[in-house]
Design a protein around this nucleic acid. Structure first.
Length: 510
RNA sequence: GGUCCCAUCGUCUAACGGCUAGGACACAUGGUUCUCAUCCAUGAAAUCGGGGUUCGAUUCCCCGUGGGAUCACCA
């Protein structure tokens, strides 16, 4: 193959012959683990896809092997502009890196199937030469009629029942079909499911190369997995039933089977059906926009369909790689639990440092907050720990901000008289002398931390009864029924503002 | 419809055939506390049904039931 145009034909790829016996191929006979994720570029990446990619990635890294990102762009009609970039962005976001990919061809050539067409033709020719492939003589309408008839008779449609006795040489204008050599029951081993089997009705004369010259998935993925030295084929359970088809192709091509690793499906929240795009599966990057951290998504996704068998639930990427094993992949499907995702995001959100959280929170604030007279990054920095303690995801910050939960930090609140009364009793007037006293104490207090403020007034609060002082003080500062404690409020707004608000409250009550 | 796969608290799940079926999320109660939040403690909550093998079954086998997947010139 001297064709200089083929894009899989990188100089070094020429040395890696595609039709020599497999045991001279170091990648397929060696012990090095190679896994791949092979999406078609038909839109965004959803949870299920990323999870499958993640497991393949984790296993490869665990074993010190390689992870390949291969784009299966053989259906130009379904291809969506920009999705190759989108897929890469999604994977990179949660920290999945690939050794070879669309942007990173390697010893096996391009990782775009559309750039490997000559390779599939070469393998197809092998089958033709063995008498195991032939051109489909029917029109699409004719095949459709066969199918309809089979459906009416309530039996599965099998093309091989219509296989012509003789056929012309394939000229590339018709689809090339596989002539399944032997219709039999297949038994195989799955690393997760164990012994699996399927019957004759799954075996058929599948299309190898379509009329447009592109290969089908059935054919292309086998060729590529072999060429790229993939040792473990990790994919969803939707491929179990078509595995006999693949197995018959491996046999015909004289390619050794890789190890099959079936991942459990991710179910929609009701746990009833598989989570798919039409069941509300979101673009993984939508979670990014919503304010979920990549650490959260990585950790959470890893735990859908896998667990280490210990009680640990929080894992860094490194810990996941270390702990990951095929044996612990589940057989049954799991629902995507958004509530637990929220909990986990909060766990990770509480670990990030204040300056990072300031940026995170600031992006969530609406104009009604950022436009406030005293809005500043300095004040926000002081406010952040109290937000961090409460919030699971960014949208909660926006919501809280819109209902005025943070406004007091950036503008002097108007405090209703009723609110200043603790326990709604009639002791409001008693609060006035207490507020005078605390004003006096705070005017000379150290405002460098909430604790130093607390130290300045605590003894007095104990003396008069904590609630009797702390409730009106806190409400005077925040203007809200619920808020952080008064010391934190005072610290956030600063000394001058604190003293001003105490005076305002005294006047309101007087 | 044919074929295949799966089955433990509401959810995610643990339990080489052997302690009282464990943990987490969510929920409830109590404690700390001026409120909210945090934190701590406690509680309620499960082996789909029926047979079989076994001294013993969540675990192994069979039948049911339920759910899922698949039967394209889609991957």
């Amino acid at each position: 193959m001297k064709n200089p145009v083929t894009t899989y034909g990188y100089a070094f790829a020429h040395n890696n012959t595609m039709n020599e016996s497999t045991d001279t191929n170091p990648t397929s006979s060696g012990t090095r683990v190679v896994t791949r994720f092979a999406p078609s570029p038909t839109g965004f990446m959803h949870i299920g896809g990323v999870r499958t990619a993640l497991f393949a990635y984790l296993y490869a890294k665990k074993m010190g092997g390689e992870f390949i990102l291969r784009i299966e762009d053989t259906d130009k009609a379904r291809e969506v502009e920009g999705s190759i970039e989108h897929i890469q962005e999604s994977l990179r976001w949660i920290g999945i890196e690939w050794d070879y990919g669309p942007d990173k061809p390697g010893i096996h050539g391009s990782c775009l199937q559309s750039e490997r067409l000559d390779l599939y033709k070469k393998y197809a020719q092998k089958l033709i030469d063995k008498g195991l492939a032939y051109p489909d003589p029917y029109t699409t309408d004719e095949v459709a009629q066969f199918r309809e008839k089979a459906q009416e008779e309530k039996r599965p449609f099998l093309f091989r029942e219509h296989r012509p006795e003789t056929f012309d040489t394939w000229d590339g204008t018709k689809p090339l079909r596989f002539k399944v050599p032997e219709v039999k029951r297949y038994h195989w081993h799955d690393e997760v499911r164990g012994a699996l089997e399927a019957g004759e009705e799954m075996l058929d004369d599948v299309i190898l190369i379509k009329a447009d010259g592109f290969p089908t998935y059935n054919f292309a993925h086998i060729v590529d997995d072999h060429e790229m030295g993939v040792t473990h084929v990790m994919r969803g359970e939707e491929f179990i039933s078509s595995t006999p088809k693949f197995l018959s192709l491996y046999d015909a091509l004289e390619i050794p089977y890789p190890k099959f690793v079936t991942m459990p499906p991710i179910m929609a929240a009701d746990g009833k059906k598989k989570l798919g795009k039409r069941d509300g599966a979101k673009d993984i990057l939508a979670y990014k926009n919503d304010g979920y951290l990549p650490e959260t998504m990585l950790n959470f996704l890893a735990l859908i369909g896998w667990n280490p068998g210990t009680e640990q639930e929080l894992f860094s990427k490194e810990e996941l790689i270390e702990a990951f094993t095929l044996e612990k992949i589940q057989r049954s499907g799991g629902a995507f639990n958004e509530e637990k995702l929220l909990w986990m995001n909060k766990e990770y959100l509480q670990k990030i440092d204040t300056s990072a959280y300031v940026a995170y929170a600031q992006a969530a604030f609406p104009e009604s907050i950022t436009g406030l007279p005293n809005f500043s990054e300095e004040t926000l920095t002081k406010l952040v720990p109290t937000i961090q303690e409460r919030v699971h995801v960014r949208s909660e910050i926006t919501e809280a901000a819109e209902t005025g939960e943070y406004s007091w930090a950036f503008t002097t609140p108007e405090v209703p008289k009723e609110l200043l009364k603790w326990k709604k009793d009639d002791s409001a007037h008693d609060a006035v002398p207490r507020l005078h006293k605390v004003h006096e104490l705070l005017s000379t207090a150290d405002f460098s931390t909430p604790e130093s403020i607390k130290a300045a007034v605590w003894d007095y609060a104990e003396e008069v009864g904590r609630g009797e002082l702390l409730w009106p003080l806190r409400v005077a500062l925040s203007g809200r029924e619920r808020s952080p404690d008064p010391f934190t409020c005072a610290y956030i707004v600063g000394k001058d503002e604190t003293l001003l608000r105490i005076r305002n409250a005294s006047e309101t009550l007087a």
